[in-house]
């Protein structure tokens, strides 16, 4: 594999609970398994969870806090994933860090990490306040995670506005927790509805998948190993697209084959 170009990517959504941390964990593992040296940085200092989803919670000794204070070296704080040694986590420190953390601190951390990795994923906190601004300060690109729900799309729009003014580019979209059946019945915002409204290119489409919950229970991201669940495949495809591979996005209508799907498709024909 040729050396991939460097990316520092903010994973954010505005709204909480739409799948930022799950995407960060799965994308991190998927990239690492493709041979990309990947660092994931938990920038959700108030409510950190990335360690838990990666199954690394018992291996944390030092955090970003000690690195910034100079009381440990970066290599001591970075937790390497056992099965995917190309992936390392820099854990978030104590929630009290929120009191003094500045955007410059995040920039400092990222500058320290950069020479050792190809891709840095920054897991942003929900909201658009200081925590989010700190996380965004060091990012060059962004992936917005949203679900096809009005509140998530509205919040995503606010975040996109903030990222645009900061000159973060490209900003790409992952549409998460898609239910093809509800979409086909027009009981859920369609893919083009969301991409039209937010005016962002889609880099991933992830179907609602119960296996996500099972995987978080175990602390083993779906992309670990050869998992074939729909979400695992979708996350791996996001990783491949990020590295420049051309992989077509699935057409959710094709996921519902048969006569009923055809009738539904006919019903969605634009007449005027």
């Amino acid at each position: 594999m040729t050396a991939p170009s460097q990316h520092t990517i903010l994973i954010c959504s505005g709204k909480g609970g739409v799948g930022k941390t799950t995407l960060t964990a799965n994308l991190g593992i998927a990239l690492a398994s493709q041979g990309v040296r990947t660092a994931v940085l938990d920038a959700d200092f108030g409510l950190r969870n990335l360690d838990l989803l990666l199954g690394l919670e018992n291996r944390i000794v030092f955090t970003a806090q000690e690195v910034l204070a100079g009381s440990c070296r970066l290599e001591q704080a970075m937790v390497k994933h056992k099965q995917e040694p190309n992936l390392s986590l820099l854990p978030a420190g104590n929630p009290r860090m929120l009191d003094w953390l500045k955007p410059e601190d995040m920039q400092k951390i990222v500058e320290m990490i950069k020479p050792h990795f190809d891709v840095i994923l920054i897991d942003a906190p929900a909201g658009i306040e200081d925590g989010f601004k700190n996380a965004a300060a060091a990012a060059e690109e962004a992936i917005i995670v949203t679900t096809p729900e009005v509140s998530a799309v509205r919040d995503a729009d606010r975040v996109i506005g903030l990222l645009n003014t900061r000159g973060i580019n490209p900003i790409q979209l992952v549409l998460n927790r898609v239910r093809p059946k509800m979409m086909a019945n027009q009981e859920m915002l369609g893919i083009s509805d969301v991409t039209d409204i937010l005016a962002l290119p889609l880099i991933g489409l992830v179907l609602e998948d119960e296996q996500v919950i099972v995987s978080t229970n175990r602390g083993e991201p779906l992309t670990l190993g050869n998992g074939k669940s729909p979400a695992a495949i979708a996350y791996r495809n996001v990783a491949k697209r990020l590295m420049g591979e051309q992989i077509p996005l699935p057409d959710p209508n094709q996921l519902n084959k048969g006569l009923r799907a055809k009738v539904r498709q006919l019903m969605q024909t634009k007449i005027f």
């Binding site: 009005v150 729009d157 019945n185 027009q186 009981e187 859920m188 915002l189 509805d193 409204i197």
Partner: peptide
């Protein structure tokens, strides 16, 4: 009308104001 259509219209309106 289908709730997705309602959702889209409501979003477009509220975002025009937000933006």
């Amino acid at each position: 009308q289908a709730s997705a259509t309602t959702a889209k219209h409501r979003l477009q309106l509220v975002l025009a104001h937000d933006r």
